[in-house]
Design a protein around this nucleic acid. Sequence first.
DNA 1: AAGCTTCTTGACTGAATGGTCAAAGTTGAT
DNA 2: ATCAACTTTGACCATTCAGTCAAGAAGCTT
Lengths: 216, 216
Amino acid sequence: MPAPRPPSAEKPGTLAKPARSRIQQRNRQRILDAALEVFSNHGFRGATLDQIAAEAGLSKPNLLYYFDSKETVHRALLTRLLDDWLAPLRKLDPSGAPDVEILSYMHRKLEMSRAYPRESRLFANEILQGAPRLEGFISTELRALVDEKASVIAAWARAGRIAPIDPHHLIFSIWALTQHYADFTAQIDMIRGPGHDPFEGAGAFLDHLYKRLLAP
Amino acid sequence: MPAPRPPSAEKPGTLAKPARSRIQQRNRQRILDAALEVFSNHGFRGATLDQIAAEAGLSKPNLLYYFDSKETVHRALLTRLLDDWLAPLRKLDPSGAPDVEILSYMHRKLEMSRAYPRESRLFANEILQGAPRLEGFISTELRALVDEKASVIAAWARAGRIAPIDPHHLIFSIWALTQHYADFTAQIDMIRGPGHDPFEGAGAFLDHLYKRLLAP
DNA sequence: AAGCTTCTTGACTGAATGGTCAAAGTTGAT
DNA sequence: ATCAACTTTGACCATTCAGTCAAGAAGCTT
């Protein structure tokens, strides 16, 4: 028989993690890290396998031994990310204090942008180009989660526990404001000059903004 | 609110280039329109000259008769845009009423996003990738304008005419919130389902948000 | 150490893509 | 109508890029 089966693709149906050698673990990790770096800076089409391979310290054929195609690497990256992406909103607790819950959500999201700007840019790149590879995720899981939490917020507003605002727009505004600091870092840096943390003052500003917006 | 002025066509007065025939005018315009469509949806590297030429209804060599290279088309597009991009902030009047001025600026920017989402995405694409082709513009003209208007806002705040807020973050927040509706249209559409204008309710929401934020 | 499996790579391939060029077609002023 | 300048294009070129392949190197297990 020709080439041994590359163990790259996740086998549907079977266990998600068939035992992998240390080498596989290490190299898959390296590849995903390198791919995150490259995809987040250049978008899907702008990224090349050679770049990713070089960044990962592997040869291109070696990279393709671990992942069947560029597409596969990209999907693996997104998949690895989606759960973490939903986590902050998932934690919004209907039984908590409305203002605290919403403020906490905003701060979690901001912290996410600060800690994982590359992931944020990867997302932004995808959505800018029409979200072809995220359509399933967004219009099912994300949409369901947003609708669920939006109705929680709407109930809070109806009960007069926060100001009456459109919950969808509230959520969109949190996304816009927090992700902006990660996605537009280049612009912020150029405007404020070097030597500034792009997130400097962002937490305090957004805290103030949402406290004012939500006060009943 | 009146629609903002469309992105400027050609500089009529001084010419670095000799008078252009009607054919040139028409075809250059077609190419730039096509290029805007393609670049804004796929980014610089993701766009191809064949795509742009097809969209413009020209052959690729014919396109290259009007612009020397892909790079040249792209630069022409950006150049055509930069002035219009600054216009809304330029209009912020130091002698006006602070809240009215800032609110008006926000609405102008939102209207810009609504009317020219492709231009907004073109910008977003550039900045996401580190703004290599916008570095000059951002760190000189845009920066100077932002600093100028930020100090106007800071003065208003010191005088107690609006709430004490960080003017840079205020400006960033306006950019983030208004451009989000243009840049992340794909996501908003998928979450709210089809048949919704992504900007629906945005004006009212943002109006409310900034009124609350700015009240002294 | 033997023998099997897993990794790695140099050399390719075919398709895209940015860009060139000379020749052909079109336009417009005289 | 003529002719020179302007416009258009088919054919072509060099490079880049995703992906293949067969053979060799390195690990593991006994």
